[in-house]
């Protein structure tokens, strides 16, 4: 299926979970200080492994950057 991950279109396995998407993007399984929004709604960390996005979904993976 196709997802939009951090504004980039990505082909991922149909069975992929949010945890898989985060790991593929960050390069590690459970990156610190990261939050995920699926189509704009927060997905709690505890639900990453069970949440399966659908084709066309938008996923944002966010973390801390410098800011006042």
């Amino acid at each position: 299926m196709q997802l939009v991950v951090n504004a980039v279109t990505a082909d991922v396995d149909d069975a992929a979970t949010i945890a898989d998407v985060v790991r593929d993007l960050a390069g590690i399984a459970e990156p610190r200080g990261v939050a995920v929004a699926l189509n704009g709604a927060v997905v709690p960390k505890a639900s990453w492994a069970e949440t399966r996005p659908a084709d066309g979904d938008t996923i944002d993976v966010l973390t801390a950057v410098q800011g006042g």
């Binding site: 951090n6 504004a7 993007l25 960050a26 390069g27 990156p31 990261v34 939050a35 944002d60 993976v61 966010l62 973390t63 801390a64 950057v65 410098q66 800011g67 006042g68």
Partner: peptide, 10 residues
Amino acid sequence: VTVALRRLDP
């Protein structure tokens, strides 16, 4: 310290 939240840059 304050931080902002933005898309992850690996």
